[in-house]
């Protein structure tokens, strides 16, 4: 998987939820399409899970099914009490993973 895009505020206020946006390149092959050349169904190959951790603790996660659009985009909220590291992990049907980390400064 390609390098994901992640948007988090550089500085956040302690205890105040802030929005996180993530976007990753993936075809999200639904398993419903047919290969026109062969007549065979194209096997499902999607990102099926996304997890966001703050200093190792899961703060938000999502289970994705084939109806999530190609190049999945997710927006959600996180709250932090102290500066730390956000870790983002995407996993697809082949077991392939993509990760990203962002340091957030709590003021």
């Amino acid at each position: 998987m390609d390098k994901p895009r992640v948007k988090v505020p550089q500085k956040v206020k302690a205890g105040e939820p802030f929005e996180v946006k993530v976007l990753i390149s993936h075809t999200m092959e639904s398993g419903q399409r047919t290969d026109e050349a062969t007549g065979q169904k194209i096997p499902r190959m999607i990102i099926n899970s996304f997890t966001c951790k703050l200093d190792g603790e899961v703060v938000f996660s999502a289970t994705l099914h084939p109806a999530v659009s190609a190049n999945p985009y997710l927006a959600f909220y996180v709250v932090a009490d102290k500066s730390g590291e956000l870790e983002f992990v995407w996993v697809d049907d082949s077991g392939d993973t993509a990760t990203a980390t962002r340091t957030i400064e709590v003021t």
Binding site: P17, V59, F60, V68, P72, Y73, L74, A80
Partner: peptide, 12 residues
């Protein structure tokens, strides 16, 4: 730790 139950995405 999510703070709010708010989320957005794009679907088929």
């Amino acid at each position: 730790r999510s703070g709010y139950a708010r989320a957005a995405t794009r679907i088929r």
